[in-house]
Each structure stands twice: as structure tokens, then as C-alpha cells.
């Protein structure tokens, strides 16, 4: 379910948090092309103070941010596309995420990895790459899509001494809505939604209704650690069937892992996952491979319910 709120957008929320972080905590924002290019979709305060422009160094860049974290500034490190995570990975997962275990000191860097999609995103930059990072210890991962969720994870980061990978999606920036889990007595299937696909929750619900199917729909903010809540168990016991859906590749990723965990937790259930197909997305409409559409979700649900 979707709750309309007349507050701030996600972008404004991130900007406010960042501004306050600079003013109150001596925080810094670090990354490439922050100021000249629309202040990262207006998520960065339009000011000089606290903003550190990096050269285009995509391996050392993460190292600079990790160093600033070790130095105590709790930096917000921005990657304007999640594809840059590949190059920036090592300082984040081998240094920031492990420093507490190895050395005893921590490197709390707030990693804003931004996903985008559409025909101009192409084979490299399309959507999220949070999954491979979940494989490694020491790095919590979340995917906030609403203003409230963003505030929540910021509070977590403020109190914690761990780095945090924030899997953002441009799709959310202009949104003000909050999502509420949708639980119904006569649901036949349970859906767990991650990242941009959440913006289709209402459409999915309505399309399924037309097919005579009622679904429980859960919105996942935390990907790692993923805590199985009682309401998930109750829903699974009722529906026996579930799909975990994410805005990234379907195989070997976090959605498959969560599906596996849920299925093991509630015996006698079938939990599958849905995401991007195992091929590179292209710019041409013919090569589109993105967040599963509401039609694709409905098709998968029908198949699951009919045991095909």
C-alpha cells in the first residue's frame, strides 16, 4: 500500500541530511562531478563548504573516502552510478568493511551508490549492483526508497561505527510517498519488493486483483542483515508461495539469497525470485532488461500459483 504524504521528496531529504551533517558533525561529502552537474540530482546542498570534489579516480577515490572515515569525518561518498562500485570496490570491502575486525578501528563511510535505468543507461550503468557486496563481511546494505526510510538509515549510520552501502535509485528522488506493507486474510501469494520495483506495488496489486489474486506485499529496506520478521513468517504460512523481486540481476544475487532463507525458515513453502535477465541490457528498446514490469511480475505470480 502507498501512503501519500505532503512532506519532502527523497532528494530533498538526502540534501537536508547532508547539509546538517556538514554543519553539525563536521561531515564531508566526497565524489566526482558533485557541484557542476546539477548537484547530483539535487541531493547535494549547493554550497562549497564540506563538499570535496574528487578527480576522476575511480579506484583511489573510494580509498580517499575510506581514509576520511578512518580520520573520523564520517564521509558521505557518492557514486553517481552503481556501475562505479566495481572499480571502487576494493577499498570499500577490503578496507572499510574489514578494518574493525583486522585493526580494531572503524571506517564508517556512508556510500551513496545511485542506480538509474532506461534506454539511456546502457549495458554498464543500468540498475543496482548491491548483491556482490552482500557476499562480503562487515558491510550492511540497505535500499531506502522513501523519505522516512532515508532518515531511518541515516540514524542507523550515525549511531553505528560501520560503513553502510546505501543502494539508491534515481526513480525515488522526486517521490514523497511512504509504503506500508499490505497484508490480507485471503492472500494467495506473498511478494517481497526491493528497490525501484517498489514503485510498482500498487500497479501490481491492482493487476493481480483483476486476475482474481490477492497478494501480501512487503517492502524491504534492509538487504543485509536481512531479518526475517514474524509478519513474513505468518504470511508465508498462509500463502505458501512467495516471490522476492529486485531491480538487479536475478541469478546469484540478494533476492535469490533472501528467497532461500525464507523458504528454509518456513517449511513447505515455495519461494522464488525475479529480477533482470542474465544478459546485458542495451540502449535499444529491443535489448531492454531492467526492473521487472508489473506485467512480468503478474505473469510470474500466475505461473507460481498454477504450479507451472
Amino acid at each position: 500500500m502507498v501512503k501519500k504524504i505532503m512532506g519532502k521528496t527523497v532528494a530533498e531529504t538526502i540534501r537536508d541530511i547532508s547539509k546538517k551533517h556538514i554543519e553539525k558533525n563536521k561531515g564531508v561529502i566526497m565524489g566526482q562531478c558533485l557541484s557542476a552537474v546539477g548537484w547530483v540530482q539535487n541531493t547535494v546542498p549547493a554550497q562549497k563548504k564540506g563538499i570535496i570534489e574528487f578527480p576522476m579516480t575511480d579506484v583511489a577515490g573510494a580509498g580517499f573516502a575510506v581514509g576520511a572515515a578512518v580520520g573520523g569525518r564520517k564521509p558521505i561518498f557518492i557514486l553517481r552510478f552503481q556501475s562505479f562500485l566495481w572499480l571502487n570496490a576494493s577499498p570499500l570491502i577490503n578496507n572499510a568493511a574489514k578494518s574493525k575486525e583486522i585493526f580494531g578501528y572503524s571506517a564508517p563511510v556512508f556510500i551513496r551508490a545511485i542506480a538509474s535505468e532506461g534506454i539511456s543507461s546502457g549495458p554498464i550503468h543500468t540498475n543496482c549492483y548491491h548483491s556482490p557486496f552482500a557476499h562480503m563481511p562487515g558491510l550492511p546494505i540497505c535500499a531506502p526508497m522513501t523519505p522516512k526510510e532515508y532518515k531511518k538509515i541515516w540514524q542507523f549510520f550515525k549511531k553505528s561505527d560501520l560503513p553502510l552501502l546505501v543502494s539508491e535509485h534515481r526513480r525515488s528522488y522526486k517521490e514523497k510517498k511512504e509504503f506500508i506493507d499490505d497484508i490480507n486474510k485471503n492472500s494467495k501469494v506473498t511478494l517481497f519488493l526491493i528497490s525501484a520495483v517498489r514503485f510498482q506495488s500498487l500497479e501490481i496489486k491492482n493487476k493481480l486483483k483483476k486476475l482474481g489474486i490477492t497478494a501480501d506485499i512487503f517492502h524491504l529496506l534492509w538487504l543485509k542483515p536481512f531479518n526475517i520478521k514474524k509478519k513474513y513468517i505468518d504470511s508465508l504460512k498462509k500463502t505458501k508461495k512467495a516471490i522476492v523481486i529486485d531491480s538487479t540481476y536475478e541469478i546469484c544475487g540478494i533476492s535469490e539469497h533472501i528467497a532461500y532463507k525464507l523458504m528454509n525458515k518456513v517449511k513447505g513453502t515455495k519461494v522464488i525470485n525475479l529480477g533482470m535477465k542474465d544478459r546485458s541490457p542495451g540502449c535499444s528498446v529491443k535489448f531492454i532488461n531492467g526492473t521487472p514490469s508489473s506485467n512480468e511480475v503478474c505473469k510470474k505470480v500466475s505461473k507460481l500459483i498454477n504450479n507451472k
Partner: peptide, 16 residues
């Protein structure tokens, strides 16, 4: 323009 008769079968616009 994203046709499969392109240099890269319409995979990526300018870059590839």
C-alpha cells in the same frame, strides 16, 4: 537509433 543493423546491434548508443 537502436536498430539491430547498427555497429553493435543497437546495444549501447554512442559508447560501444
Amino acid at each position: 537509433i537502436g536498430l539491430n543493423t547498427g555497429t553493435n546491434k543497437g546495444m549501447g548508443g554512442s559508447p560501444p
